[in-house]
Amino acid sequence: MRGIAFEEEIYGFTFREYGDVGKPRYLILGLPDVGLVGSIASMHIIRSLKVPDVAGIENYTMLPPVVVIQNGEPKHPMRVYSNRDIAFVVTDVPISPAGVAQLSMALVEWARLRGIDYLISVTGIGHPARVEVEKPSIYLLASSDEASELAKKIEGGSRINDGILVGPYAIILKEAVRRRVPNLVLMVESFIDMPDPEAAARAVEALSPILGAKLDVEKLLKEAELIKLRLKELMKETKSVMARMGKGYEYRTPLMYT
């Protein structure tokens, strides 16, 4: 936890910048959700591109009182990584339902203030027969025409036409529309409550053309077992939070289809 260069409070969440955030084009959100797809994919890209962590996001009442220690250095549990072109938000603690609305609004507002061109939400879409799916499908949801244009760069992704989205990415999407920050939601078929590195690998492959980097997923797939073992408990915590957030709504039909 290095010395803070700049601090800004948005909707109760403090963004503490200790590195150079720059003015990134993309902000990739890897919040814990279905199959931890976004979290695993984001961490893999961060490692592959050697993106440094530059800021911590804090709220002492809505996030558990946690410090993460890496190589002897204390770090914020929720962090922003940035290489000045691409930024990421990842968290080691699940977001409690009490804080999800404020955090989602804060993230979109922070992106707007930072002049970020696109918010990319990466998540899983639960597939009940995932164990039989060799190559998980990719679905896309765009908040605006600009986000739809960006979606065209993703090979093999199809637009999601019907469904319900629940959780932080739902609020982020609504706030992105309200604050005119283009938001692309990238969903990969995955296990609902088991970490799914294979689905995350699909997300990484899909993001490669957008990020302009050939991202190798071989290491991710090779280390899938270790990742699953490591993230087992985060997945359990996330499942409990997802349930309290009303994730069950995703698996029913909306009234408007009637």
């Binding site: 009940p128 027969a129 164990v131 296990f191 609902i192 409550d193 088991m194 970490p195 899938a224 077992e225 270790l226 990742i227 699953k228 073992l229 087992k232 997945m235 359990k236």
Partner: peptide
């Protein structure tokens, strides 16, 4: 002993239980 993650799927005439034990 750690508890593995698991998923229970109702397949109509049967129940499928997937127990994930990486490592």
């Amino acid at each position: 002993a750690i508890e593995p993650l698991y998923q229970i799927i109702d397949r109509g005439d049967s129940i499928q239980i997937i127990v994930d034990m990486p490592g």
